[in-house]
């Protein structure tokens, strides 16, 4: 199998990336880890006259902590995220979602920017970014734009990035206080895309009541989704009982919109999704209640 012929570009700066995308418009496509794009080219599901390889742009790699957020540059590999102690401290949900992505050979090449730009609804990172209200930084020749996660994912494999733009970084808010996080999914085999999955982030106050709640769903609709109704139900309340968690799982499925396909029926996805929401919420709330300090502060001592 061979992709259709293309012209290969290997720019070394973000300016040159933007220049090439401006010049070639929708004839060109950025190439990141290639773990989704190359299979699609090989199967001839898509073709482009120009590929703009981002791998030689050093400025697109790495993780840094600014005031209240963690910046992950687009070409940071999933393997680098998995190993990064700062990610584990600042955005535990991102760290915990990472081992669920594919296999270690995939994570050695696959990137954070690529996963988000590819926007597979069964992917882990889009649900994490949506749940944590991450901000996406896009660059084109005409400048830099910042987009909220709630505006970024437009459909299956569809984002608001236009052909002239490259995703350069994602900013994840760092949660302070007594927090807990969890990510769980069901897949046929380890490393497969999830049939359904859920992420949860919880902050509790001094009395143990829920102050902040975010629930992200994946594999449960055309895009990653937030379980808004379940989040609202939790806030201000003491920790739910086991029955309460089950009810919240059911409630979360009101915001889900899964499809029937060869891998699983929509009703199966809903049943699994409700359980996963219940489980991730229970473990995130429990972790938050055990935490006496922000996770970063506790571990730094």
């Amino acid at each position: 199998m061979k992709p259709a012929p293309f012209e290969y570009h290997a720019p070394e700066s973000v300016d040159d990336v933007a220049g090439l995308l401006a010049e070639h418009g929708d004839e060109a496509k950025p190439l990141a880890g290639g773990q989704s794009l190359v299979p699609m080219l090989a199967l001839r599901l898509t073709r482009f006259a120009h590929l703009v390889d981002l791998n030689r742009v050093a400025a697109l790699r790495g993780v840094s902590r600014d005031n209240g957020s963690l910046t992950v540059r687009a070409m940071t590999t999933q393997a680098a995220v998995e190993r990064d102690a700062e990610v584990a401290r600042a955005v535990p949900l991102l760290a915990r979602a990472t081992p669920l992505i594919g296999h270690f050979q995939i994570r050695n090449r696959g990137t954070v920017g690529g996963s988000l730009a590819h926007a597979d609804p069964a992917s882990e990172y889009p649900a994490v970014a949506l749940a944590l209200d991450a901000t996406f930084e896009l660059v084109s020749k005409s400048g830099t734009t910042r987009v909220a996660a709630s505006d970024f994912f437009e459909g299956t494999w569809q984002t608001c990035i236009d052909a002239q733009q490259a995703l350069v970084a994602v900013h994840f808010p760092v949660w302070g206080g007594r927090c807990g996080f969890a990510c769980e999914e069901v897949a046929r085999r380890a490393g497969d895309f999830a049939l359904a999955g859920a992420v949860a982030a919880i902050e509790v106050d001094d009395a143990g009541a829920v102050r902040r709640a975010a629930v992200g769903l994946f594999g449960l609709g055309p895009t990653p989704l937030r379980a808004h109704a379940a989040e609202a139900e939790l806030i201000g309340e003491p920790p739910p009982t086991p029955d309460g968690y089950r009810a919240l799982g059911q409630l979360a499925m009101r915001d889900a919109d899964p499809v029937d396909d060869v891998h699983a029926s929509a009703s199966y996805r809903r049943r699994v999704g409700a359980h996963l929401v219940a489980r991730t919420l229970a473990s995130a709330v429990e972790e938050a209640r055990q935490a006496h300090d922000p996770p970063g502060a506790a571990r730094a001592r």
Partner: peptide, 13 residues
């Protein structure tokens, strides 16, 4: 040094 799938990397890369 990193284990990767050589069918998903172009030689030029």
């Amino acid at each position: 040094g990193a284990a990767v799938r050589s069918c998903l990397v172009f030689a030029v890369q």
